[in-house]
Amino acid sequence: MLAFATLALLVTVALALVRAALGPTVFDRLQAANTVGTCAMLLLAVLGFLFGRPEFLDLALVYGLLNAIGVFAVLKFLRQDDLGEASKDAANLRERA
């Protein structure tokens, strides 16, 4: 059953990758990237059990955190053009839509 779960997760990753390639907006791609990240996290957890190496769960934890932070970082970059400075306004975001 672990092998089946691995396979199904890989199928989901493939579907999300197709969505990321098709787009059409940058938000669709971000949502697809988020789904790929979630599935990769689950995949790490399942593989840890499949290979009998539960240390993989630590990696899954870090991957889950990075996944969320990655989405926020891209959104912030879209909004403000760079990651360091605070608050140029939302007009910038509209411009690039």
Binding site: L9, V11, T12, L15, V18, R19, T35, L42
Partner: peptide
């Protein structure tokens, strides 16, 4: 998980 992927498409 697969249903989510299918819905995404």
């Amino acid at each position: 998980c697969c249903v989510g992927g299918i819905g995404l498409m």
